[in-house]
Design a protein around this nucleic acid. Structure first.
Lengths: 330, 330
DNA sequence: CTCCTTTGGGAGATCGATTTCCGACATGCT
DNA sequence: AGCATGTCGGAAATCGATCTCCCAAAGGAG
C-alpha cells in the first residue's frame, strides 16, 4: 500500500541500496549489466519512483525552478510563464508558477515560500521597480535569481527585458507614417519598470506637451476609464498608444460604444501581443516580445555561475505587429 | 553564506535541536518561555527558515497541493486555479499549478511529476472523459485526488462539477423567454465530460432536429470557424448557445465582421463567465460557476478520509448572467 | 608466482528536521 | 519523609536516497 522505497527494490533485485541507486539514479559508475537488468526489472515491477524529498535533501537540488508573475489574470503573463515552461521542460526540469496578486507583500511571501527549499532557482517578474527590490535582493543572496521582463532597483541580479524605448519608437513611427500626429499615451502601472520606461520613452519622443492618461493599474476596467477620457479629448487626438493589451482592449470597447471609429477617427495600439487581440473588431496593432529567446537566455543565466548574474539589464528587440486598428489595409 | 540550519539556531540559543524544533515547528508540548524566547530570537537573527525537503521527508507531508488544468491559455482555467489557490492559501498551504497542454499524455506526465513526493494531494481537471481515466486512477491509488469541473471514466475518485444540464436549461429557457426559438449549439471538445454533457443536454431539450455545430477543440479560432457556419445558416437560426466563452468570443467577432447584428438578428451566449466577456460589444450572456464554493468543497474532500472520496460526481448549481448579447435592455 | 592495479559491490555516513524515549527535577499527596 | 505523578530538556532514532570509503576479486606486469 505504501510507496515502494529504494530498499524494497534493492531487496527484490537481491542487491544493496547503493547498487540500486547507481542503476536508477544513473551515477557515472559501472554496474554489472546483469545486476542492472535485475534492478530495472524490480523497479518497474514495483512501480518504484524515487522520493523527491529524500533525493532533494541528499543532493541539495530539486530539479525545479520557480517563476513569480505579477498576476495570471493578465494573459500576457500566462504566455510568458508558458514560454519559460517550454525551455525548463526541454532542459529536464519542472516549473512552479506563483501569482503575486500585484502586491509586493504577497510577492515577497511567494518568493520566500519557493526559496524555502522548493526550487533551485527563481525567475521573478517584479511587481514594482521600487518596492520589489528588497525581497529580490534577499532571494538573490540565497539562490540564483533572474529578473524577467521587468527589473527592480537594487535587485543585486541580472534582468532579461524588452527594449521598451525601441518598442515605443516603433509604435510612434508607425503611427506617424500612417499620418497620425496627435498621439496620446495611455499608461498604467508606472510603478513597474516596463510601465515607467514606456512612459519615459513616449515623453522623450513627444516632448512635454504630450497627451498622457495615467492610470493606477493594468486592469481592463482601467482601460475603460481611459476610454472615457480619450472620448472627452477626441478633437485633440488621432491615435492612442496603450501600455498594455488589456488597456487597449478596454479602450477600444469604450470607443466603440461611444461611436468613435477605430481606426477611422482614432488609431489604437496595444502592447504585448496577447492572443485576444486577434478577436477584436478591429484587431489591434501591438508589440511582440521575443519571449522564447528571452526565456532561453534567462535560463542560461540562471544556470550560469553567479558572477554572470551581476546586476544589470539585458534588452531584447521588440517586433511591431500591424493590424487593422492602425491600418485599414490589414 | 550557506543557509542556517536548525542546529545553528539551537547552538545560538544554547539549547538542543529538539527544543528548537519544538519551539519553531509548534509541537503541542510545553517549553520554558525563556528558552522559547531565546530560540525565536536566534531564529530571527539568523534568518532561519526550515529546509522544506528535510521536513517533508521526516513528516511525510509537504503542505503543497497541486492542480493540473487542461490549459492556462483558456482564462476560465486561470480563474478556476485562482479560486482553488485562494482556499488552499487560506488553509495555510501552497498550490502548484500545472498545464497539460490539452494532451492526455502530457497530463499523465504532469500528474506523475507532482505525485513523486511533491504534493500531498491533487486536483485534476481532466482533459478527456475517456483517456484521462487511467492516469487519474493510478494517482488516486497513491494519494488523495479530487476531480474538478470535469470527471473522467473509471477515475476511482470523486468529482466536484457543475450541473451542466441545468446550465443548458437555464440558457435555453432564457432564450425562449426572449422570443428565440431557432436555437443552435456550438460545441467543442466533446471528449471532455463538460463538453459532452452540454451537448447531450441540448440535444435532449431540442430533439434530434437540433442544429449543432461541432468543433474539435476549444480555441478561439474554432469559434471563428463556427461563426462562418452560423452565417451560412443565418436564416434558420436566431440564437446560438456556445459551449465555452472562448468560442462565443470568436463567434461574435465573426458575426460582427459579416454584419450580422447581435442580438438583433442572432442572440449569442457563452459559458464560464470569464472576464473578457464584459469587454465585448455587445457584452455576452454567460453561465457563472460557483467556483469558490466548489473549490471549498473540493478541498474538504481532498483532506477527508479516503472513504469519502468514493467514485461519484457531485454537482453544483450554475447561475445565469444576462448581458446585452441576448437582451438589449442590458 | 607475487605484487600491483583496476573494477565493482556493499556497509555505513550523511543531508536537516521531527519525534520517541529516557532521565532529571519539581510538585503534591499521605 | 517517602513515593507517586507530572513537566520538560536532550540524546538518539528516523524518514529515503546518495555518496564516500573500504574491501574482495580479477586481471596484468614483472
Amino acid at each position: 500500500m505504501t510507496a515502494p522505497r529504494l530498499l524494497d527494490v534493492a531487496e527484490a533485485a537481491g542487491v544493496s541500496r547503493a547498487t540500486a541507486s547507481r542503476v536508477l539514479a544513473g551515477t557515472p559508475r559501472n554496474v554489472d549489466p546483469e545486476l542492472a537488468r535485475r534492478v530495472e526489472e524490480a523497479a518497474l515491477r514495483l512501480g518504484y519512483q524515487a522520493n523527491h524529498s529524500a533525493r532533494a535533501l541528499r543532493t541539495g537540488t530539486t530539479g525545479t525552478v520557480g517563476v513569480v508573475v505579477p498576476t495570471l489574470a493578465n494573459p500576457y503573463f500566462v504566455q510568458l510563464a508558458d514560454a519559460i515552461a517550454q525551455h525548463v521542460r526541454a532542459a529536464g526540469g519542472t516549473l512552479m508558477v506563483s501569482d503575486a496578486a500585484n502586491d509586493p507583500a504577497i510577492e515577497a511571501e511567494q518568493i520566500d515560500t519557493l526559496l524555502a527549499g522548493r526550487v533551485d532557482g527563481l525567475f521573478v517578474v517584479p511587481v514594482s521597480a521600487r518596492e520589489s527590490g528588497a525581497a529580490v535582493r534577499n532571494a538573490a543572496a540565497r539562490r540564483p535569481v533572474v529578473l524577467f521582463d521587468r527589473w527592480t532597483e537594487d535587485s543585486g541580479t541580472v534582468a532579461v527585458t524588452l527594449d521598451n524605448a525601441a518598442a515605443v519608437r516603433l509604435l510612434v513611427e508607425h503611427l506617424e507614417q500612417t499620418g497620425r500626429h496627435r498621439i496620446a499615451l495611455v499608461a498604467a502601472d508606472q510603478a513597474s519598470s516596463s510601465g515607467a520606461e514606456r512612459l519615459a520613452a513616449f515623453t522623450e519622443l513627444q516632448g512635454d506637451g504630450a497627451t498622457t492618461v495615467l492610470l493606477p493599474n493594468f486592469t481592463t476596467d482601467a482601460g475603460r476609464t481611459a476610454g472615457r477620457r480619450v472620448v472627452e479629448q477626441r478633437d485633440r487626438i488621432d491615435a492612442v498608444v496603450c501600455g498594455a493589451d488589456v488597456l487597449a482592449v478596454g479602450l477600444v470597447s469604450t470607443l466603440h460604444r461611444s461611436a468613435v471609429s477605430v481606426p477611422g477617427e482614432i488609431a489604437v495600439t496595444g502592447f504585448d501581443d496577447t492572443e485576444i487581440l486577434e478577436l477584436f473588431d478591429p484587431p489591434i496593432t501591438s508589440i511582440r516580445h521575443p519571449l522564447s529567446a528571452m526565456a532561453e537566455r534567462a535560463l542560461t543565466l540562471l544556470q550560469a555561475p553567479s558572477r554572470e548574474r551581476a546586476e544589470r539589464v539585458e534588452r531584447f528587440q521588440p517586433q511591431l505587429v500591424v493590424r487593422a486598428s492602425t491600418d485599414v489595409s490589414f
